[in-house]
């Protein structure tokens, strides 16, 4: 596919998310905003799609396992030329393409998510496949911290470590919230980095909104001599970029009205991220 020059700026992507959320009266804005910088760095610097083809056989695999952040991925896919403007202006209109959670039938999305804990295992399978074929393909799976309540995540972690899947990286969006409250208060995860380390991963914790830190961590992981799978724990802020949404879990569910939409646009425009 041909892409005009993608604009992977966090500010532009947040504006796209706001526009489509307002157009579709969609929820999960906070979930999308916590992963914007992670996606910026992945799509701009690391994910390899030969010929800009989201279905290229030797592509890297990016699995958005926390499908609730899908609007952030849609925004990136538009920058790549994989999705067109009509899909955004008509978001949630009858018969439209893009759903409120990721759908694997759309090229660029590797899983149908929303039911949590699936994408991790699918990604482990992809990484195992790449290892069996001895390709250079990398697999990245982005999960939420709430999502890792799910058992299959830890089943997959055992497998990835057992089979030394050094081409596999889980990125945990640790925004501290899940649907009904703080992760600490629902099922306390404790130290996520040490949990993955104890499962045999090479793990590091970084500021998930610091693009340089994210980029350095990913680069260092792939440069590592270790054969362990990788876990990048990204400390993030749910609703990042719009002060009245930050750390406020109602933006898991709340829809924008004209007033909050305008306020949010202003905040994003003035926020030199």
């Amino acid at each position: 596919m041909n892409a005009s020059t993608p604009n992977f700026s966090a500010k532009a992507l947040r504006k796209t998310v706001l526009d489509m959320a307002y157009a579709g009266s969609a929820v999960h804005i906070g979930c999308a905003f916590s992963i914007i910088e992670l996606l910026v760095v992945l799509y701009r610097n690391h994910l390899h799609y030969p010929g800009n083809d989201p279905l290229a056989a030797n592509r890297d695999y990016f699995v958005l396992s926390k499908g609730h952040g899908v609007m952030a991925q849609y925004a990136c896919m538009r920058e790549l030329g994989w999705l067109h403007n009509e899909a955004f202006t008509g978001y949630f209109s009858d018969g439209s393409l893009l759903k409120g959670l990721s759908d694997s039938r759309i090229p660029g999305m590797e899983v149908t998510s929303g039911s949590l804990g699936h994408g991790f295992s699918v990604g482990v399978g992809m990484a195992m496949g790449a290892k069996l074929r001895s390709t250079e393909q990398k697999t990245y799976v982005l999960v939420g911290d709430g999502e890792i309540n799910e058992g299959p995540i830890w089943e997959g972690a055992l497998f990835a470590a057992q089979h030394r899947l050094k081409n596999f990286m889980v990125i945990v969006d640790e925004n501290g919230f899940q649907a009904m409250g703080k992760t600490q208060e629902v099922l306390n995860l404790g130290n996520i980095q040490s949990k993955f380390e104890s499962f045999g991963f090479e793990a590091v914790t970084i500021d998930g909104h610091d693009e340089i830190a994210i980029d350095n961590a990913i680069t260092q992981f792939w440069a590592s001599n270790s054969t362990a799978p990788k876990a990048l724990i990204a400390k993030t802020v749910k609703g990042k970029g719009v002060p009245f949404m930050e750390h406020n879990n109602i933006w898991h569910y709340t829809r924008l009205d004209q007033h909050t939409y305008m306020q949010a646009l202003e905040a994003v425009a003035g926020n030199a991220l």
């Binding site: 695999y61 899983v111 699936h118 295992s121 699918v122 482990v124 399978g125 992809m126 195992m128 496949g129």
Partner: peptide, 8 residues
């Protein structure tokens, strides 16, 4: 889930 990833 892995089988799905391998098939993909």
């Amino acid at each position: 889930g892995m089988a799905a990833g391998m098939a993909r």
